[in-house]
Design a protein around this nucleic acid. Sequence first.
DNA 1: TGTTTTATTTCGACT
DNA 2: AGTCGAAGTAAAACA
Lengths: 248, 248
Amino acid sequence: MTVISLHDPSHREAFWELEAAFDRGDLVSVFGQCTVSYEGRAASDLGSGDRLLLLKPDGAALVHTDEGRTPVNWQPPGSTHHAAVREGRLRVRSTRTSPDERLTVRFSTVRQFSAMPVTGGRDLDVHGSEEDLRTRIVERPALIEPGFEPTATERPSSAGPMDVFGVDADGTPVVVELKRRRVGPDAVGQLARYVRAVREERGVDPDAADSDAAVRGVLVAPSVTDRAAERLADHGFDHVALDPTADD
Amino acid sequence: MTVISLHDPSHREAFWELEAAFDRGDLVSVFGQCTVSYEGRAASDLGSGDRLLLLKPDGAALVHTDEGRTPVNWQPPGSTHHAAVREGRLRVRSTRTSPDERLTVRFSTVRQFSAMPVTGGRDLDVHGSEEDLRTRIVERPALIEPGFEPTATERPSSAGPMDVFGVDADGTPVVVELKRRRVGPDAVGQLARYVRAVREERGVDPDAADSDAAVRGVLVAPSVTDRAAERLADHGFDHVALDPTADD
DNA sequence: TGTTTTATTTCGACT
DNA sequence: AGTCGAAGTAAAACA
């Protein structure tokens, strides 16, 4: 129930505690000089150097250097960890199947070892996602424009499901496409395909771009590139500037 | 020059060593019960629980639970770390600008603290990447087919740069598209755009799909989906099965 | 189990 | 600083 911490342990000592930590389901960190090799979806080799090896009870293994957000090598959850002492040195191997992958860390020196029991608090509450944005628009349709009424989210069409679908104050159908960050022309193309699909459903000229178009397109994003703005104008679509993080 | 490790330190003690470790440019890990909040590109809150906080000298900050390959919260490299003691508790904050982001970790208990000096061995030698595949094909063109001769890699076209461009045994131009894993119809579409661009360059019928097409398309990938195979056949393109990991 | 889509994607290269 | 494309992407939703 407590953290086990070893300073400059022997390889055999580290191995012993590693096995015990696996059994307890602890989160383990091992710091020291090591080489790393990976074989699986690709292959890689890392020469000798100081790294931090993190071993999780769910099977994940991470090798971190002093730089970067992403581990320099890793193994996904679902792998199984094995420790051994070979030629007097600690070797940790993490393997999984489908796809077959194997990560091997060979320590020449172990400087620090910790085994940490972890309890609770795994649930993260994220807001500012696209789903969150959709919810906010359904709850407060005026964010799009006064009089807008959403009738469906994820409504299917021949071009795929549309983020939000509804009608404006005049009763004209509106297709709303949501993006949580600055968008390029590709997003306009996606919106255009949805609008076109709905126009075809209704038997209207699919390529109309004026008030006779009978189906409107609205792109919701914090901002758009110049190119995207041009394409929006070409199609006669509107852009609503909405920051997904803002409270309203 | 050595690892500093504290078992159940006081908040003030942890704060003190944290500041010193930042100054030395050490890799720091702090394990304990804490809450985490993030504001920036999105926003999130994480209730109290045991987590491992990793602070790197390049500004990266990672919060790990006992599950998953990706950190539950993080801050990218280039951020700056600040430690403080507020109301008797250790608080670590990592901030950056453009975009403005802030990660705050508030500890209620610190169970383990380590400051680790990291030296050398940061260069990873990965093989099996798309770039690696390209190199292999240039060195051994027969992997595509006997008589194939690559003339350029990343050759520009009106549809973007092509992975490999060359001529076959008959002197017919060949566009090669490389994918390191199983591909769907989208990859065939990409290849088709390149082939079409080259045909247009040469003043040939861009939509021809037979031996008169004058420009061939080859898709290199370990395997293709059924749908992709159909589209390859439609266009008259070839598929070469190549595992990016294989030695030859 | 495999496929498709999203992501606080990250990361690198290039403009 | 923005834009584009690849990644051992990871992870979730879905068939």
